[in-house]
């Protein structure tokens, strides 16, 4: 009597333990599917792809020339985007650290007003700005330059970064700053020796988010970049998509190259990023 009663919940229990993994696994499979398609199609020509869209081609039939072609095609765009994203991210985070220190450490006359000047922008939708921004960049002779992307990118991410960093720096123990002050550290030294080392994971997370944002940007480049040599990935990929006859293999290989810098970025910072986000780095 007791035997079946005790085994049945056991089996149900095991099922209940496995089921979540099955569900999560299935979701992850779908999430990984574009990645898989990108990789395997990149080794095929159109004929092989139409023949057999799902499975990787046999190793002997791999079209390595797709990669070579794609590299030539998209390499310069990747280089441009790396330049814009790296410069923009570094400037954006550096400026935000300075500004956040100003707001977080002291209450200076006027700092409240300045703070609301920044925070109001959180409410301002960016949409209305694209048109005047375009003409402003024209006035500044920044049209068709990468500097325009960097400058606008830095300005755009500033408010969010300031908001997050200010909260974070305010939560650092005040003693540390005072001890550093007694030790003879000026403000810049306090930033360098206290703020930066102690907020590494949050800075990393913000930097990755900023980098991703710039990497994925396409509207502004589409509007302001004219010369093919200056194209960032955003515009480059759009033009690639506009080709009439598509060589899917070459396109997918190009996509892989577009992802490559992000792969490298995540290889080195994945831990930091997951940690930063999981620690509630971005609070409500």
């Amino acid at each position: 009597m007791s035997a079946p009663v005790s085994t049945r919940p056991g089996r149900a229990g095991r099922l209940a333990a496995v089921l979540p993994h099955v569900v999560i696994g299935a979701i992850l499979l779908i999430e990984f599917f574009p990645l898989y398609m990108m990789l395997q199609v990149a080794f095929k020509d159109n004929a092989a792809f139409i023949d057999n869209p799902w499975l990787p081609a046999p190793l002997a039939d791999w079209r390595w020339e797709n990669w070579w072609f794609a590299l030539n095609l998209i390499g310069p765009y990747v280089a441009n985007t790396v330049f814009v994203a790296v410069t923009g991210t570094v400037c954006s985070v550096a400026l935000a650290v300075l500004g956040a220190y100003f707001f977080a450490r002291y209450r200076l006359p006027g700092s409240g007003v300045l703070w609301s000047l920044f925070m109001v922008l959180m409410l301002l939708p960016g949409i209305a700005n694209l048109v005047p921004l375009f003409t402003l960049l024209k006035e500044l002779s920044l049209l068709n330059t990468l500097w325009a992307l960097i400058a606008v990118g830095v300005a755009g991410g500033q408010v969010f970064n300031l908001f997050v960093l200010r909260n974070f720096i305010e939560d650092l123990p005040k003693d540390l700053f005072e001890a550093a002050e007694m030790d003879g550290a000026g403000h810049l030294q306090q930033i360098r020796h206290i703020v930066v080392p102690m907020s590494r994971s949050i800075l990393g997370t913000l930097a990755i988010m900023a980098f991703l944002g710039k990497w994925n940007e396409f509207l502004l480049p589409l509007v302001i970049l004219r010369d093919r040599e200056l194209f960032t990935l955003g515009v480059g990929l759009i033009y690639l998509d506009g080709e009439y006859v598509k060589q899917w293999g070459q396109i997918m290989a190009a996509y892989c190259f577009a992802a490559l810098p992000l792969i490298i970025l995540f290889l080195f910072t994945m831990r930091l990023f997951v940690k930063g986000l999981s620690q509630g780095a971005i609070k409500g």
Binding site: P173, D175, L176, E178, A179, A180, E181, M182, D183, G184, A185, H193, I194, P197
Partner: peptide, 17 residues
């Protein structure tokens, strides 16, 4: 400024870096 007063302080919470 504190750093020019030639004093040192031990804090309640130690304030170690």
């Amino acid at each position: 400024l504190p750093k020019d007063r030639d004093i040192a302080m031990v804090f309640q919470n130690y304030a170690l870096y």
